[in-house]
Design a protein around this nucleic acid. Sequence first.
DNA 1: AGTTTCTACGTAACCGTTTACGTGATTTTT
DNA 2: AAAAATCACGTAAACGGTTACGTAGAAACT
Lengths: 376, 376
Amino acid sequence: MPEEPTVGLVLGSKEPRERKARSQSEVAKRRAKRTDKPRIKDIAEQLGVSVATVSRALNDKPGVADDLRRRVIEMAAELDFTPNMAARSLNGARTGAVAFVVHQHGIPVANDQFYFVMLRAVERALSKHGYHVMIATVGERADGRNEELRLVSERRVDGVILAGPDINSSLALSAIQHGLPVVLVDNALERTPSDSVVCDNRDGARAAVEHLLFHGHERIAFVGGPTTWLSTRERRAGYEDAMREAGLETMVIHEEATTVTTGMAAGRKLVGVPHTLLPPSAVFAVNDAMALGVMRAAREAGCRVPGDLAVVGFDDIDMAEISDPPLTTVRIAKELMGELAARQLLELIHTERQLPVKSVVATTLVVRMSCGCAAK
Amino acid sequence: MPEEPTVGLVLGSKEPRERKARSQSEVAKRRAKRTDKPRIKDIAEQLGVSVATVSRALNDKPGVADDLRRRVIEMAAELDFTPNMAARSLNGARTGAVAFVVHQHGIPVANDQFYFVMLRAVERALSKHGYHVMIATVGERADGRNEELRLVSERRVDGVILAGPDINSSLALSAIQHGLPVVLVDNALERTPSDSVVCDNRDGARAAVEHLLFHGHERIAFVGGPTTWLSTRERRAGYEDAMREAGLETMVIHEEATTVTTGMAAGRKLVGVPHTLLPPSAVFAVNDAMALGVMRAAREAGCRVPGDLAVVGFDDIDMAEISDPPLTTVRIAKELMGELAARQLLELIHTERQLPVKSVVATTLVVRMSCGCAAK
DNA sequence: AGTTTCTACGTAACCGTTTACGTGATTTTT
DNA sequence: AAAAATCACGTAAACGGTTACGTAGAAACT
């Protein structure tokens, strides 16, 4: 008769989960815990030191002998160690990521590219310093006006870059209240002092208009977006500076957005102006998208560009160069602005600078065909 | 004489940092630990339950009475609680973020916008499900060919979306080896089966070429990018399908990139073709950027579009509509593709589907002016 | 009525790092 | 040479969640 095997089912053992390794010197080749990703502990065991020392060595903290520090770094490289950022950031240390926030327009047109270029410049600059970029688009105010950034409240990022003209200032405030560094790009807050990177809108606009003036234009119209947008206001100011100096009347049109479509709308208003009024001979548009729209509307109305109407834009998006006629415009150094924003944010993260800094980068007038000066 | 206050400086108390709260019922209003951010513990204390229960309640895990679960959720809302994702992901649970990887071209031109639109669609779809998007641009192979995604090795993301034609397949492999779900967009891997979202390149190209054929063109050239790019290969196949059916000869030009510049180069080759050969009467370009380049080169060579040369593109980027003449092109539903990619990735993350799925979305021929059929 | 199975919850280990604190072994100070 | 300061390192407590396991009480079976 076969013996029954004694099936011993032991539940609830005294010490749950091998509480502590009996000896910690014999555990040399402890491999493959959950995943085979090397942890800081693995480095420590290989070298026979404590995890604290390894952490200090890797983070350039004092209190580690130079020789040991070197060995730790070598071992880390050998094991192909990359720190688990979740664990690191849990202690309130840096998360190694920043947020890039851009407003989600209803009808995003050409100037999208503007922000994408910046985004990439930001990413490139930050990744050099080991940072990652999380993107967030903030929606229309309609649905949830309280619009707090989840990225911020979830503690995912060390800083925030806010791009675009209609950044809700409450957005910036909420980040600042969380104690996070904030840098605005292509915008700046009115009341709240904060870091920002802009281009010299006013000067660029003035240069563009002065170029038109120099070539004999006297009736120059301004086409812009909402007056709440800083870029529109500043560029209009530059336009007015130039016109005032020349002793000329201004003609101003504001649309609710700065797209090709609204540019066309503005263009139609300008060329279809009542006969009692003289139509403008030139238009300075607040950005290239609108300028292209104006050109298109003019063409559709049988008005030749630049023959009957000279057009100048702002931004120098890719399309400006290949449009017909190629668009004269004010070039913004988008990559530089993105890079500056990244650098300023890093500085804010790593130091305790209190006073905000506003970087303003110069612009360049790029003369192509649409202003007509080459033909004149 | 004033009594000296007994200044008791106690160092090294027996129990470091209040080891355990003596009683845990009296600690009702324990506020402001480090930051005032509410933790799961705060909710638990307010309700007099354990943190485990709160965690279960908030994560829809079983084992919580319906009534209590409701109260937990209410309290979480009242305290404005948002989970600390670092802590959550430390256990190997989800990180709540995915990576969007796009190759960083040397000279990024027009078709940038293509990926930006997708990126935004992805972000919108994923944020609805509480996910964040981290962007990563992978550089030229030159510097570090081993190109492993830090985002992946740092355990920051639950999945990866790889966009663009020249995604290094080793990139995908490395992510897959880490056990991460991967979805390719606008591309697909040859050997390695994996999820992907593409548009019907072949069919779209065939439709475009057939449109030209229908309007009488017989000498139709194909202009594309590197033959290693799937999109170029497939669109060329569609082009060849149509030409073969019509019994016509093919004319093919491949450039090393698909930009406006390379499009111009191709355009010059076509219009400057030796006189012994008949120049093409129409061009099908592999994307809009190249098509715009072809148009520009043609115009510079005194060749009218569409009069002397009909041009059709692919993608339907914003510029296509506002170019002169407006570009006839094959529209890709970029938003839809981004959304599909997001959905597929979520599915991969949340389920254990093994078999890869390839989504192919149909294209639409958008007839504008550059093909000349309206004028014919 | 006694035994088993659920159900709902509490307890505490655990994830991988950082860091306050403790401790011997040196070095510096008086 | 004894005392004090410094240095190099180890110990273990956080950080804020998730989750395996334990356990009362209620419900469902004999």
